[in-house]
Design a protein around this nucleic acid. Structure first.
Length: 883
DNA sequence: ATCAAGACTTGGTACGATCTCG
DNA sequence: CGAGATCGTACCAAGTCTTGAT
């Protein structure tokens, strides 16, 4: 069985199609890096991670051979359909940096991924691969037998389908099972994956100075907001009303429904502002009393009530450019609607209120499944991840082996991952990828069109007469689970999802989508108009969770809730002053719970921390505010706190902030007598915290603070810093504000593999320009004296220029150098900052649209096509709009 | 009061598409 | 025109929060 043999098998598996889908993320080993800093982390993380040590990079190169022909084992039995992955050979990991302390982390990621698209390739592959069959050595392959989870099973089998349970079982098993495996022993050479773990640590990026950054912003907010806020008080009602109205105009969100339901349903109420109002009022009032911010309505009024008012004058302001663009947008949207059938009834959207009903009629065609399976196997899914960081994670390999060995069966020749050489499969994979890349553009186009043709019917749904885009109508293909951070389940096999796993939600009168796979049927059909999902299935990795098919972000349904989200955040503006005063007062409350709530709220407000729900043991161990551990916060006298923890997606949050003394003291109290791994806020959890917040403002929850702080910061910075200048300069201002928000929210990205190369290239160019400058200066001196310029590097005589002309050139060159230096600085500053997330989720688009109108910046400079579609509801905002 | 199910928002990444510059 | 840089997206993982049952 030597290595090779297996390899061959491997090939078999894949057929292409299904390649595993993989995404890569690197996770990183974050821990490692940080280690230095925090021991804390360790504790937390605990996980062992220790293991690893080296980087992952194994990327071995591909050696050569192709082998494409490897064969597949004989029985290619079924394997899941995976698509052929595509991987790109990237250099994987790049460097890791050792970052010195804080360094941000980098991640080394590898790339690889396969995407669906690869499938196309598949075809080819098939030929190759499949055909081949090489003899594999038998070994492995087993696939045949095993098959992975379902995938493996041939269709027929599936029918039964349901086997699901079986599967489930498997899933359930979870980690535990895996664990036992262990023996991993090492990976052997062939495979190579040594487990190295990558010491890299790389992953985290953090910003270095984090501390600073954050603090700044925060402060600002506080101030600003407060000030501004003051306004309203009791006015709530009005506000709300206004809001609601606002909503209405835009898209016909609710359309028909609204009418009906609207009020009726409200019952629930829960949320929306509308309902809430009354309460709010009261609440607010109270508070206000204290403070006195009552700046009622008047103020608000100024701000235009958003929507409707727009008509007013302001619009006119908008420049042509702007306007044109806006118009365009509108047009488009309209068009779309037209296409579809629509009829909008734009009524007001009572939106919020309606409690539950989300639609009256819903028509769609279900979901599309990945290609049926081709022979290919689990081994391919694994092989394809060769140049990923996952290869250096024992947990990943263990989980994979656990699942794979089950498929192989007890009597299979392959007894361990270590003895398998996945290189041939990996190389085959690279080849397929290359082939695909080499396809002529016509071929690519043809494939694309074909795919489009197949998918088109699934791309749209009709909601109350309006044609809307469906978000993710493609069922997730089988693959290996790529959990982020140190996820206990990484590497587990994600089985194929079949129709019998899927529940469809559709209007009562709509035709039930035909099941795309002959002989099979949907698990269930529902007609629930209180939810927005079109279909769902249980997540194969964690059967207690669901995967939903929703409408796209550009849909009215999503747009409406997006708008409500921002309206709620704007409402917080009216309450924030009192809320801050209240928690400040409670920093010294006698009651511990009260004190913890106060401090937690403060952190959420000031640092934009997430709430921090409890997590299960079978998830990566990350924290949010309520789940902070004692070891995540270090008190630095006299009044600074250093935070260091892994947040959502295992992204490290490191920040040192100065806090009010009472907070500093309270944290110290919460820490005393506890070990580093104990909960800092032992009396708290998110439901208690949110329950408290709701008493302060209707509908208030922890995440509203993030939205509020992000949007208020943008609004504030834009208004404070926008100066006269050309569009490009204004865009820079915008980006700077955007960056500030991203830092506050700790939205990070990994450093691109080519970052350092890009930087040195720029440095080189600047140096060249400086030499040019020097030469120009010499020429200038000579010109002034009436002498001709010196010869150029090639010894040629340069043209005689007047001193003025040379002077001009010098100025140009200087400008060029300055620009390059600025660009370089920006690039460096943004290398670990992700601007997109806040733009998509946290910044009220109306702030941006209004600012663009006011400053004659074409909205397209800020929002790309999909954002324009997503924010269609915000495009007609009044130029005077302020968050 | 807890817990779990359920529904929906938020996040980072890999890769293909598109743009830019030599 | 081509390599590299940047942009735009699909993907799907990972949070938040609500609700209903116990």
């Amino acid at each position: 069985m030597a290595v090779e043999a297996p390899a061959k098998h491997v090939y078999d598996f894949d057929d292409d199609d299904d390649g595993p889908v993989v995404f890569k993320r690197n996770n990183t080993s974050s821990f490692k890096q940080n280690q230095f800093n925090s021991e804390v982390k360790k504790t937390l993380s605990q996980r062992s991670d220790g293991q690893s040590g080296r980087q992952a990079s194994d990327a071995r190169g591909l050696n050569g051979q192709s082998s494409s022909s490897l064969n597949k084992s004989i029985p290619p039995s079924k394997s899941p359909p995976v698509r052929s992955p595509v991987l790109s050979p990237k250099s994987s990991n790049s460097s890791v940096k050792a970052s010195p302390l804080r360094s941000p982390v980098m991640n080394s990621k590898a790339s690889t991924s396969l995407n669906d698209r690869s499938k196309q390739a598949t075809q080819q592959n098939k030929s190759t691969a499949v055909k081949e069959e090489k003899t594999p050595i038998k070994t492995t392959e087993t696939n045949s037998d095993s098959d992975d989870d379902d995938d493996s099973q041939p269709l027929s089998a599936r029918l039964k389908g349901i086997s699901s349970q079986g599967n489930k079982g498997a899933n359930t098993s979870t980690p535990a099972q895996s664990q036992r495996l262990v023996p991993k022993t090492e990976i052997k050479g062939s495979a190579e994956d040594p487990d190295d773990e990558a010491p890299l640590s790389a992953r985290f990026k953090m910003k270095s100075n984090s501390g600073t950054l954050i603090s700044k912003p925060c402060e600002s907010h506080e101030k600003k907001p407060m000030a501004s806020k003051i306004q309203q008080n009791g006015s709530t009602m009005k506000d709300k009303q206004q809001k609601s109205s606002v909503l209405s105009d835009k898209r016909p969100l609710d359309k028909g429904n609204s009418s009906d339901q609207s009020y009726a349903k409200k019952p629930k109420i829960s949320d929306t502002p509308t309902t809430i109002k009354s309460k709010q009022v009261t609440v607010k009032a109270e508070k206000n009393e204290e403070d006195d911010d009552h700046i009622p309505i008047s103020q608000r009024i100024k701000k235009p009530a958003p929507s409707n008012s727009k008509t007013s004058s302001m619009k006119q302001k908008a420049t042509k450019v702007v306007s044109s663009s806006f118009k365009k947008i509108n047009k488009n949207s309209k068009k779309e609607m037209k296409n579809s059938k629509y009829s909008k009834s734009t009524k007001l959207s009572p939106s919020s209120g309606d409690g539950q009903k989300k639609w009256s009629n819903l028509v769609h065609n279900g979901v599309i499944f990945p290609p049926p399976y081709k022979p290919h196997g689990v081994a391919t899914m694994f092989a394809v991840m060769q140049d990923t960081d996952y290869m250096s994670k024992p947990q990943f390999k263990k989980n994979f082996w656990d699942d794979w060995s089950k498929i192989l069966g007890k009597n299979h020749v392959i007894k361990g991952l270590e003895k398998c050489d996945f290189t041939p499969i990996y190389e085959w994979h690279l080849q397929e990828k290359e082939k695909k890349k080499q396809m002529s553009s016509e071929e690519k186009k043809a494939l694309k069109e074909e795919k489009l043709k197949q998918e088109e019917k699934y791309m749209w749904a009709v909601v109350d007469g309006v044609k809307e885009k469906v978000g993710n109508f493609r069922v997730e293909p089988p693959g290996l689970f790529r959990g982020r951070g140190e996820h206990p389940k990484m590497g587990k096999l994600k089985r194929r999802i079949r129709p019998c796993d899927i529940t469809i939600n559709i209007g009562k009168d709509a035709p039930i989508p035909e099941c795309p796979i002959p002989g099979e049927r949907w698990k269930d059909i529902k007609h629930d108009n209180t939810v927005t999902w079109l279909a769902f299935w249980n997540d194969p990795i964690n059967p207690r969770e669901f995967k939903y098919v929703f409408l796209a972000a550009s849909s009215s349904l999503k747009g409406q809730s997006d708008k409500e989200k921002y309206e709620k955040a704007r409402l917080l503006k009216d309450y924030i002053k009192n809320i801050r005063a209240a928690y400040t007062k409670d920093f010294t409350a006698k009651d511990v719970t009260k004190r913890q709530i106060a401090v937690a709220t403060y952190l959420i407000d000031k640092l934009a921390l997430r709430a921090g729900n409890e997590k299960d043991d079978d998830e990566a161990d990350t924290v949010g505010c309520c789940t902070l551990k004692v070891g995540n916060v270090e008190c630095i006298p006299p009044n600074k706190l250093k935070f260091d923890f892994l947040g959502k997606d295992s992204i490290q949050y490191v920040n040192t902030v100065e806090v009010e003394l009472p907070v500093y003291k309270a944290i110290g109290q919460f820490q005393t007598g506890k070990s580093k791994t104990d909960d800092l806020f032992d009396e708290l959890d998110t439901s208690k915290l949110n329950a408290h917040l709701k008493e302060l403002m209707p509908g208030l929850t922890a995440k509203v603070f993030r939205t509020y702080n992000a949007s208020i910061t943008l609004d504030d910075m834009l208004n404070k810093e926008t100066k006269d200048g050309d569009v490009a300069e204004k865009v820079v201002i915008y980006q700077r504000a955007n960056k500030e928000v991203a830092i506050i929210c700790n939205h990070q990205r990994s450093i691109s593999k080519s970052h350092s190369a890009q930087m040195s290239r720029l440095t080189e160019k600047i140096t060249e320009l400086k030499d040019v400058l020097k030469e120009l200066k010499t020429d200038l001196d000579r010109a002034k004296k009436g002498k001709p310029p010196l010869k150029d590097a090639d010894g040629k005589q340069k043209r005689n220029l007047t001193p003025d002309a040379i002077q001009k050139k010098i100025a140009q060159t200087n400008a060029k150098i300055e620009k390059m230096e600025r660009d370089m600085q920006t690039k460096e500053d943004l290398k670990t900052v992700a601007l997109g997330t806040s733009k998509i989720n946290y910044l009220d688009p109306r702030i941006t649209v209004a600012w663009c109108k006011r400053h004659e910046v074409p909205i397209e400079k800020i929002f790309n096509k999909s954002l324009l579609a997503k924010f269609a509801w915000a495009m007609d905002v009044d130029p005077d709009f302020r968050f």
